[in-house]
Nucleic acid binder design. Sequence first.
DNA 1: TACAAAAAAGACAGCGCTGTCAATTGAGGC
DNA 2: GCCTCAATTGACAGCGCTGTCTTTTTTGTA
Lengths: 346, 346
Amino acid sequence: MGQQTTTRATIFDVAQRASVSIKTVSRVVNREPNVRDKTRQKVEQAIAELQYRPDSSARNLARQRSHLIGLIYDDPAAYELPSSGYIIRMQQGALRACRERMHELLIHPCNPRERGVGATLRNLIESARLAGVVLAPPLSNMTRLVRAIQETGTPFVRISPGLKVRNDRCVATNDLEISADMVDHLASLGHERIAFISGDDTHLAVGNRYDGYREGLRRNGLKLIPELVVAGDNSFDSGAAAARQLLGLDARPTAVFCANDDMAAGVVRAASKLGVSIPDQISVTGFDDIVMARQMDPRLTTIRQPLARMTERAVKMLLQGDGSDLFECIPAELKIRESTGPAPRY
Amino acid sequence: MGQQTTTRATIFDVAQRASVSIKTVSRVVNREPNVRDKTRQKVEQAIAELQYRPDSSARNLARQRSHLIGLIYDDPAAYELPSSGYIIRMQQGALRACRERMHELLIHPCNPRERGVGATLRNLIESARLAGVVLAPPLSNMTRLVRAIQETGTPFVRISPGLKVRNDRCVATNDLEISADMVDHLASLGHERIAFISGDDTHLAVGNRYDGYREGLRRNGLKLIPELVVAGDNSFDSGAAAARQLLGLDARPTAVFCANDDMAAGVVRAASKLGVSIPDQISVTGFDDIVMARQMDPRLTTIRQPLARMTERAVKMLLQGDGSDLFECIPAELKIRESTGPAPRY
DNA sequence: TACAAAAAAGACAGCGCTGTCAATTGAGGC
DNA sequence: GCCTCAATTGACAGCGCTGTCTTTTTTGTA
């Protein structure tokens, strides 16, 4: 229809067309108060006619901060981790909140072992003048990084397992509690010899899961049997190896609680190779609810962290403005499926 | 150490400290020519002392474009797709190139079925003044979206399977050719009855895979047997269903080529439930090389698309400046593993 | 030593918006 | 109708940088 001027309309063009000052246009665009209805309409019409879109760069410069939220997480490329689901879910939540608040999401995977990450991070945050930063685990528990971000003075929220509150904003989940609940579930099925395969403990989360396991045993009147606690490294293979070890025991466990789903998948594989049937002879549970958990046979009983809701909440905290909410816990969920069943009778 | 002034250093502060004009500082920062070595050093020292970081907003405003690259892809949240690995790999490649070129990556999943996506996209691109846009499949083949982006006049590159070149920049992969290669592989193992499970064809890619399958049959002197071509929908379950159908045939196929790994996993599951052993009784191949492909038992023979390298290349094209490269094809790779073996003798 | 030409450095006007504060208008009370 | 006060609206100075054009300095040459 209308002829496209070669240059984009600016706030000035709109003001002229609506016969008001640019400040009034600014008020309308930013939904500021003190604009008469009739004026607003005039302006809105001019905006529509000119297809005016505020220029973020100019706005950012004037406001002294951008409309960008940074999501910072452990770079999977640095390790070959199959953690894509984890990351995607966090991105999804953050994106939801960003959209709602008219912000955009900048993703910034980073390798914490690299020299100078702190400086790089500071540089990004300061030069882009990020409106806020969400720091995902396990980075959220690395003092060096947290400090680097603090130094910029930019608002940030840590996504953190566990409850370690500091003086900054944090969204957590009840991973310790829910791990104990998983033990409850197993205990209620009659299991007494419940093994635990732990993971790589750079993830603080993993420690919490173990603590939850112990808490679960305690409150179900079960005692911790040292030989049933095996160290894994979060990988499928380490799960399989741990399973072989556990299944070789004279007194086998009747259930295995794995600190993550990958290891649980390894356990399932190893068990089926050894002809041990799940859940008839041994129950297996994981943690994370990765996509594969629903595609395994049997489908894996596991724990689903509310990752998307956590980052969504985090971004909202950031954009709320008031530093009110300092801490929030969003509960994880037990997903009971077919890999757990009644304890076998001997 | 040094006292932190409460406000950040600006280019003006640096200029003053180095006793030069702001323009000279700008030249140094942007590596422009015509700066004497001695001057440069003076400026660099001042920059270091003041911890000066150029303000992107100001720079973007002056330059009339941002340092942001937009990566636009099909929103997995809109479908419950387990496509996270696919997305992460594309992000990784784009991020690599962005870092190298001092740009940042904005991710923008979008649901093409939604009303007004085009407008939203235009709005994003224009108001953020993106430096460039990378459009991932299957969006890269949707005329409506491509047109919306074209209208903004912002440089963009389509990541596309197949070779359908238009007049814009595009990074492709040889999915048709490599699919035919997969058939070569099966044929070389003695297979003659090779089934194909197709996927959802909103992904143009899927059509190419089927074409490649047919091409492969042709060049190996095998004829297409209609009852061996079954429609799936890219899901695990549809793969399993298709497998049951194929295995129920009087004249079973000895190999199944699935248009993606999820379906292949479904096939493997269904086969093992039916007591059909892989690869002894039937060979199975997939497409995508998802993480699970390496964790299945047997590990899945499949095709790996160079997703990361494709987006990396795309971003580089964008930032190259010269509109030279219009089309580039990066070859996919055959990953031969244990799910394929010699055809059974009857 | 002098002079033209090239190289280096600077001056300054924007880029398109928001924030502050001043000016104008409208409403209500007398 | 006039005055006061609050509600609206406008004027204008930045925000921190880059692009263009001008001025100054240096280099090469006769």
